[in-house]
Nucleic acid binder design. Structure first.
Lengths: 221, 221
DNA sequence: TCAAAAGTGTTCTCTTTACACCCATGC
DNA sequence: GCATGGGTGTAAAGAGAACACTTTTGA
């Protein structure tokens, strides 16, 4: 079956940048391409948009198909439309990004993606297409939004300590933060509440676990 | 001539929001559609992307064709991809915005656009397609960037008074600003210099005309 | 008792806001 | 000489940055 038009049309894809923080390091989710072009090269998850879905739905679908990750909140990053960015045909790509807690992510690649894995931002492989450029823009955007919004909370699981949260901010800012100032700031926003539970994973004073006061009221992006 | 593909492809358009400030009011450039759909309805300038141009070039070309405006700096706003946003076929639109001085804009519509005109943001007609929604997002983005960047300078002609500039900031913020604080702030950025010339258009003390110290060094968007 | 992370306030600096009067000109 | 917008400084409040010690626990 072929689809014909009076004028030429580009193909449209979405690409998704998934950030997480593991052990104090900012990481990103990549898939290894199972097909040409760029077979066996690491790339951002994503794929072609269908006619009955908008770009955001497409990104959600591709992300789940390729990595098993779902129920994430996507923010549109930018649309890349350089003429020869894909060797197959004219393809424009709408890029999205999301932040996710590092816990309990089951990576389950499918046929389009031979493999899915987390990469440290300081130790990235060469990426397919113009995905390196896309990732660079996403990283800039993430850094910027971490300073003037509360998206950082999107990295957190249901319960977390203030030190966990500070680690996330330190990982994205790539510099240490003052503990007292950080806690003063985050608590002054009045978004968090104590759970009453404590957590410890070593020979030290246990830390209070916090949660979002209202997961829905928090400004998502 | 027809163009055929193995899978269905959407059409891709660009839409451009052109802001200016005239007489202390924020205005936007619209064209009246010369063809169906939405014939004779006001709409954002824009049109279909060609295969040998990227989206930004497309936006520049369409803007010049439809309004005569050229040599502007475009910032990508957002890509709109709702399934039924165009009655003809599946169309996704990459929206751009720009700011321009109000002086010396010669509006010269062509065949796609029967007419081009500036509209006060407080007194807008109904817009074609989802252009109302696009404009709303552009307005939010403009307001935000006026507060944390120096894009406001993009509204200015080569020479301008500090009162001119303050008017621009007041028009986009929709509230009066303190004259002394505004001047202190803008001069502290060290982006402006006195031309030595003065300007007056009424029975009052003439105002110093300023210009950008270095038009290229100013952060554009 | 030691090691390791949790937790907690005050001071100083800088940025932001509020506010009122004289100046130069055209009519 | 009067009406009109141009031009100027200081003080108070608020936000952000710097900084060190005690607490609780496991081993």
């Amino acid at each position: 079956m072929t689809y014909c038009y009076e004028y030429p049309h580009p193909a449209v894809t979405t690409d998704i940048i998934v950030f997480t923080v593991q052990k104090g390091r900012l990481k990103i989710l990549l898939i290894k391409r199972a097909r040409e072009p760029f077979k066996d090269t690491w790339a951002l998850p994503g794929g072609f948009m269908k006619m009955d879905e908008d770009a955001c739905d497409c990104a959600l679908r591709e992300l789940e198909e390729e990595t098993g990750l779902k129920d994430v909140y996507l923010e549109q990053l930018y649309t890349f439309s350089t003429v020869n960015r894909d060797p197959r045909e004219r393809v424009i790509s709408i890029a999205y990004f999301t932040l996710t807690p590092s816990e309990a992510i089951t990576l389950k690649p499918d046929t389009d993606a031979a493999e899915a894995a987390w990469f440290d931002m300081q130790d990235l492989p060469n990426l397919a297409f113009d995905h390196g450029e896309i990732l660079e823009m996403a990283t800039e955007r993430l850094s910027a939004k971490m300073t003037y919004s509360t998206i950082g909370l999107q990295f957190m699981p249901a319960k977390f300590t203030l030190s966990n949260l500070q680690n996330v901010y330190e990982a994205t800012a790539n510099k240490p933060l003052d503990k007292r100032n950080f806690r003063k700031w985050i608590l002054s926003l009045d978004l968090l509440e104590e759970t009453g539970e404590k957590f410890s994973d070593g020979p030290q004073r246990p830390a209070m676990l916090y949660r979002l006061k209202d997961p829905n009221s928090v400004d998502i992006f």
